[in-house]
Design a protein around this nucleic acid. Sequence first.
DNA 1: TTTATGCGGAGGAAAATCTTCCGGTTAGGG
DNA 2: CCCTAACCGGAAGATTTTCCTCCGCATAAA
Lengths: 214, 214
Amino acid sequence: MEKGLRADARRNRDLIVAAARELFLEQGVDVPLEEVARRAGVGVGTLYRRFPDRDALLRAVGEESLRRLADLAETACRDEPDAWHALCRFLRGSVALRLGVLPAKLEPHLHQRMRVGPDLHEMRQRVIAAVLRMIERAQADGALRTDIGPGDVALLMTLNVYTPPGMHSEQAMGRVVEIVLDGLRADAGSPLPGTPLDEDDLRHYTAVRLPPAE
Amino acid sequence: MEKGLRADARRNRDLIVAAARELFLEQGVDVPLEEVARRAGVGVGTLYRRFPDRDALLRAVGEESLRRLADLAETACRDEPDAWHALCRFLRGSVALRLGVLPAKLEPHLHQRMRVGPDLHEMRQRVIAAVLRMIERAQADGALRTDIGPGDVALLMTLNVYTPPGMHSEQAMGRVVEIVLDGLRADAGSPLPGTPLDEDDLRHYTAVRLPPAE
DNA sequence: TTTATGCGGAGGAAAATCTTCCGGTTAGGG
DNA sequence: CCCTAACCGGAAGATTTTCCTCCGCATAAA
């Protein structure tokens, strides 16, 4: 990505994005940019040079998250021969990404302010395609319950519970995810209320529409 | 609760707490208090008179949430003859309370700044007792999987997924909760990783310890 | 060695938020 | 019905937070 930067500049850019990602998760997207700079170990000047405003930074973090998710989906889909296991791996991984905390605040940016290239859209398509394939195969195998749609999976990707400090939260979340996976098995339970959520139900989800040029 | 207030004062107090609860959920606990006042339909002065600082308001909101939760737990436990159904009702209800968004920010207050009476502690006990009873009975009935502890249920109470605007989020959350409930059934699945979380694992959870008087 | 590119962070501008204060209003007892 | 203590609203000044530019120094790359 981002090319034509001197080596140190490139390194700092990545440090900043990583720090921002952490802080957005921990404290919300309103953290002072100075704090981001501090955590990244760079000066504010450096941050402002690379990211003219908060939105630019937000966008970078969003892109990175989505890319990670897309990679995860495709890797799981490709490397795991059994569709059900692929789905498990994907869901465990995406919950670990802690996507749930970001989009609530990212959303308005994605929709309104972001003038965004086709990259994001493409990554989104990659995720959808992979998830769809996993779902269909797993349902054909009789492993995944049939009243589940891609929209449901997308929802579950952002699964989140509050884990109090002091508790080993990764372990706790691990248990929760497994419970959910058990709830997704074909033999799991009574039919769900409503109808399976499909991609259209998530039209607005991390939606990347090119905003009308102003 | 709060007694000795003139009727209008009392009414305003409640309006403020309700507004604060909404806004804390929507925008985080850092919302300007002026905005809380506006939504409550009162002047800032009124808010400050009743709640000297943000912490006081936070505390009030926390108390109310916990009380609702306690009521829910006891009602479910009492009114529902079948333990499994009681648990379902409780979990559906507590997720609807959207507890998950609050405590992350409430926590430091509960721990460090809040000089809190025994009421909170007592309400917490009420929740624990009711949950414990539901769990034990449901497990004895062979309805609830046995590798689940009260701590797990407490975690699940705060269940949360990101629902994009435009989607009917209540319906979506409803599906998620049912999936989780299916995952909790005795016949659900493979054993969970780790050991059942008990109350001690949640010692810090909405923990109400009298802070050392300063 | 040279130089274009990048760095840090001090500090003034701007914005957001807090908190007080007081003239006017209202509930509710007598 | 009337009186008064209790309460209300919100303007305005104080304070804190956050932004973001600017420039002298450092360093990667050729």
